Amino acid sequence: PEEDCMKLNPSFLGIALSSLLAIDLWASKRLGVCAGEGSAWGSARPLMKVIEVSGHGIPWLLGTFYGLCQSDSSAAREVLLNLLFALLLDLVLVAVVKGLVKRRRPTHNKMDMFVTISVDRYSFPSGHATRAALVCRFILHHLVLAVPLRVLVVLWALIVGISRIMLGRHNVTDVLFGLLLGYALYSVVEYCWLSPLSAPALFALW
Rank of each mutant, 00 (worst) to 15 (best):
S19W: 15
E190R: 12
W193N: 02
R77G: 03
S19P: 00
V160R: 03
S19T: 15
L176N: 01
A27M: 12
I51H: 04
D90H: 06
G99R: 02
L17K: 12
D112R: 07
K49G: 00
V115M: 05
P125D: 09
S18K: 08
C192Y: 09
R77V: 05
M166F: 15
M166E: 09
L13M: 14
V144D: 14
I51Q: 01
V97H: 04
P46Y: 07
L185E: 13
V175H: 07
L197I: 11
A27S: 05
R137G: 03
W206S: 06
L167W: 07
L93W: 02
F12I: 15
S43I: 14
L87N: 09
F124T: 03
A27Y: 08
M111H: 13
G168I: 08
V189F: 10
D24S: 02
S74R: 11
F124N: 02
V50E: 13
W60D: 01
S28C: 02
S73C: 11
L194I: 13
Y183V: 00
V135G: 04
C192N: 05
L205K: 06
L145N: 04
L143I: 01
A27D: 01
L62R: 03
E2Y: 14
R150K: 14
L20G: 10
S118H: 10
S126N: 08
G168Y: 06
Y186M: 04
R150S: 13
L25K: 12
Y191Q: 08
L83R: 05
E190G: 01
L158F: 14
L93H: 01
A75E: 15
Y66I: 15
L149M: 11
L93G: 01
E52P: 08
L87P: 02
G55D: 07
D90A: 07
G161H: 03
K29Q: 14
H170Y: 08
G63I: 06
V92Y: 07
L197Q: 15
S187F: 15
L185P: 00
R103L: 04
L21N: 14
N9L: 15
D174P: 00
V50W: 12
V153T: 12
A22C: 11
V33N: 03
G168V: 11
F114Y: 14
A199F: 07
R45M: 09
L21S: 12
L31Y: 05
F138C: 05
L25Q: 13
P125G: 01
D72S: 11
W60I: 08
V50A: 13
A204I: 00
V79C: 08
G168K: 05
L13D: 13
R131M: 11
A199E: 11
A133E: 09
R105V: 09
L83T: 08
A95L: 07
K98H: 10
V147M: 07
L158H: 01
L181Y: 05
L202Q: 03
V92S: 09
G42W: 11
S195D: 13
L202D: 06
R45W: 12
L145W: 12
S39V: 04
E2Q: 10
V151F: 09
G63R: 04
L20R: 01
L194P: 06
K102M: 14
S198M: 09
G67V: 05
I15S: 01
L140N: 00
T173A: 00
P148C: 01
A157F: 10
R164L: 06
V154M: 10
E52S: 14
M166A: 15
I165F: 04
V97G: 00
I139S: 03
R150Q: 15
H141C: 15
